[in-house]
Amino acid sequence: MIHSNPFNYQLSEEETESASNSYLMSLIAIIAGLPLPILNLLATFIFYLGNRNSTYFVRWHCTQALLSQLSMLFINSFGFWWTISIIFTEENITNSYIAYMLTAILFNIVEFIATMYIAIQIRKGIHIELWFFGPLTNLICKSKS
């Protein structure tokens, strides 16, 4: 699901570091705020705001990191509130709930591994476009030149 595509200009050390950090940001926030699915999105969003005037490469990867976090926010929030309603209301643990949580955990693991892999590759200066988020980022993030 990961597709790489070389950028058409020479990347500086600073650029690859900043772009790679945008993915690391979400990984650190996942570890720090696992029960609250909003934290990793917030961390990535703050990083995105800080780098929106940066070079095209950095902006592009900050946007891709943000979009991938946004999709996980929907999946995790739904799971989070479902769990809360089971604990505090009359809702019971059902096959549907367990199936949802397993699916959500699997998608989170895939996303976690992909994010980790992409952060390493970007640091090496290899541009990587994620499945679905890559083409979407291409639509949103345009080169200023």
Binding site: S71, I75, I93, N95, S96, I98, A99, T103, L106
Partner: peptide, 18 residues
């Protein structure tokens, strides 16, 4: 991607996890 998510969820739902 969305189809994959829901497909997986609905398939797993068929198992008696409880």
């Amino acid at each position: 991607s969305i189809g994959l998510f829901f497909g997986m969820w609905f398939s797993l739902k068929e198992i008696d996890w409880v």
